[in-house]
């Protein structure tokens, strides 16, 4: 039932000549949630807008839903549900009217519309809020309405543009879990744009990491984290230290793979420069004797200035191609 999205040679150049997106091919499998992850300006939002039909790819690019070419179709003819960072709720309508909007445009019967709206309110845990005005809602509620409105029309594709970014940290986490549950239940093909790697890893069946208009790597959260294809991916997703080892040259290592012990017990010794207590663990910044910085973490805090022995297992070294 869910839609397969394919992009072929899609590039985007803005009228002022800046290249937002290098030519790319991408297939999004039916029912999967693909997260576009990257820093601001990497082209992730542009890519989403191409899929949505809010922007057209440069000459030669082609976008297809289930094999049907939709490149020339405007957004209103693509049946994509879209959730915006600023919610984009219509201030001239209440919650129920917002959710019903797409159904009304489609010409659904009033009874069917009302039933669908009630279902959406239930699904997003907004029962009783139908008559509320938009400016009476909290940020989290607004986001739920935006989601309900997008999902109500049973879109073939659900597009989410940083939907949680405007919320505060606590709420963001709880809504993230809710969203994961919802996407799992809907089984709709979805594309989710974010710059937050925790969000990406929690929600994405696959993650595409973008940088400077290119997809650096695409794969499962585990792949991206454990086997980053490029140095950019290694450094953007999770923390990583770059270390020059005698005889081995430069290696990349994650903090959790740096084992600490008593001085003299490891491959080399180092000094604790900073130790930050984070609750479940402590983040440690080590300074090696030859002046390099190495990130590590421990369950037990270590005083700054103490000497520790460091063991590195080469099996865990990250090996990006570039």
């Amino acid at each position: 039932m869910a839609t397969r999205i394919t992009l072929e040679r899609c590039a985007k150049t803005f009228p002022d000549g800046t290249r937002a997106l290098e030519p790319l091919d991408l297939a999004i499998e039916p029912g999967e949630c693909l997260v576009l992850l990257g820093p601001s300006g990497c082209g992730k939002t542009t890519l989403l807008r191409l899929i949505a039909g809010l922007a057209a790819p440069d000459e030669g690019g082609r976008i297809a839903f289930d094999g049907t070419d939709v490149t020339a179709r405007p957004i209103e003819a693509r049946r994509v549900g879209m959730v915006f960072q600023s919610y984009a709720l219509f201030p001239n309508m209440n919650v129920a009217q917002n959710i019903a909007y797409g159904l009304k445009i489609r010409g659904d019967a009033p009874a069917a519309t009302a039933a669908r709206v009630a279902e959406m309110l239930r699904l997003t845990q907004l029962e009783g809020f139908g008559e509320r005005r938009i400016d009476e809602l909290s940020g989290g509620q607004k986001q739920r309405v935006a989601l309900a409105r997008a999902v109500a029309i049973a879109p073939s594709v659900l597009l989410l543009d940083e939907p949680l970014t405007a919320l505060d940290a606590k709420l963001r986490e709880s809504l993230r879990i809710e969203l994961k549950r919802l996407l799992g239940a809907l089984k709709v093909t979805s594309v989710f744009v974010t710059h937050d790697q925790a969000e990406a890893m929690a929600l994405g069946d696959r993650i595409a990491v973008l940088s400077r208009g290119r997809i650096e790597q695409i794969g499962s959260a585990r792949d991206i984290y454990a086997r980053p294809a490029t140095r950019f991916v290694a450094e953007f997703v999770g923390q990583v230290s770059r270390l020059n080892l005698p005889g081995r040259g430069e290696v990349l290592v994650r903090p959790e793979h740096v084992e600490l012990g008593a001085p003299g017990t490891g491959s080399f010794d180092a000094t604790v420069a900073v130790c930050t207590f984070l609750g479940n663990l402590s983040a440690i910044e080590l300074c090696t004797d030859d002046g390099q910085t190495l990130l590590a973490e421990t369950r037990v805090p270590v005083a700054a200035g103490s000497r520790v022995g460091v063991t590195l297992d080469p099996a865990y070294f990250l090996e990006p191609r570039s």
Binding site: L54, F84, G102
Partner: peptide, 24 residues
């Protein structure tokens, strides 16, 4: 953005003008 949202829900230019632009 409001217009983009309306378009994503299937509203064409004229529908957007009368349901989103004019009321607001």
């Amino acid at each position: 953005v409001l217009e983009e949202a309306a378009a994503s829900l299937g509203a064409g230019f004229v529908q957007r003008f009368f349901t989103i632009v004019v009321p607001n």
